[in-house]
């Protein structure tokens, strides 16, 4: 479980996060939604320690991250897997080397054992026979899947996904969403997905947080989202005709 307490972050004069507090449950897909520029990616980067907030705390299973020594932070980080919007695979390494990288850095596994673990992770994300290819030789969807394989290589306790299905076709996006949900349940990870893809929210969202203007505006599950009367939330989630029709079909609500 990850708890965020009173998190505030500013860049120069611009206040990006304003005292955000939230709890992200273990074993479920926690989604953070919001408009572009609302601060959701900054929130994720604060939680993983890429940005240092001016105020607030982040607790990983009760362990306060910002109060930790560098060594303790390194230990926590080895428990974190992250899937980036751009996949962030290392261009100069093959698919296999990308997945083996965390093992090379943090374990004393023999080469054969690392290869076997990489093969298992790649098979889990349905990448077979591509071990020797370089990231540039893969499609966007495949790169995301290799990114997931690398993120789960050390069996993380916490999984972060920043816009995991941006730039993907709808079919591949759904596959990635399902994969993240399956892995969350399989490994019992605390998963946080940053997204503004409403299909993804409807497919896999279990604990959804809406950020608006740097603040936590709303939090609930899918059903509560469909039933919500909050104007800001409705304007964002049901911006398209398709989403409004979907809500009408499920709940009978017109407005």
């Amino acid at each position: 479980m990850i708890e965020v307490v009173g998190l505030s972050k500013r860049f120069g004069e611009q206040q990006v996060l304003r005292g955000i507090g939230a709890t992200f449950e273990k074993g479920v897909v926690n989604q953070v939604i919001g408009r572009s520029g609302s601060g959701k990616s900054v929130l994720a980067k604060c939680i993983v320690g890429l940005h240092t907030p001016e105020e607030g705390r982040v607790l990983y299973d009760g362990r306060p991250f910002f109060e930790m020594t560098l060594e303790e932070k390194r230990t926590i980080r080895q428990e974190i897997g992250m899937l980036f919007q751009s996949s962030a695979l290392f261009d100069s390494m093959t698919v296999e080397d990308n997945v083996m990288f965390p093992m090379r850095m943090f374990t004393s596994m023999a080469l054969e054992a690392m290869r076997e673990r990489a093969r298992v992770c790649l098979e889990r994300v349905d990448i077979i026979g591509k071990e020797k290819l370089f990231p540039a030789e893969l499609s966007g969807g495949m790169q995301k899947r290799v990114g997931i394989a690398r993120a789960i290589a050390l069996t993380p306790k916490y999984l972060f996904c920043d816009e995991p299905n941006s730039g993907l076709d709808p079919q591949t996006a759904i596959l990635i969403d399902e994969l993240i949900k399956e892995l969350t349940e399989e490994y019992g990870t605390t998963t946080i997905v940053i997204t503004h893809d409403m299909n993804s929210v409807m497919e896999t969202g279990q604990n959804i947080m809406f950020i608006h203007d740097g603040q936590k505006w709303w939090q609930g599950d899918r059903q509560q989202l469909l039933d919500s009367s909050d104007q800001e939330l409705n304007d964002f989630v049901f911006a398209s005709d398709l989403m409004r029709q979907a809500r009408r079909a499920i709940t009978g609500r017109v407005q």
Binding site: L50, I80, S86, A88, M105, F106
Partner: peptide, 12 residues
């Protein structure tokens, strides 16, 4: 391309 962020998050 966020590869340096990826290294930092891994604890490298």
């Amino acid at each position: 391309k966020e590869q340096i962020d990826a290294l930092d998050i891994m604890g490298v």
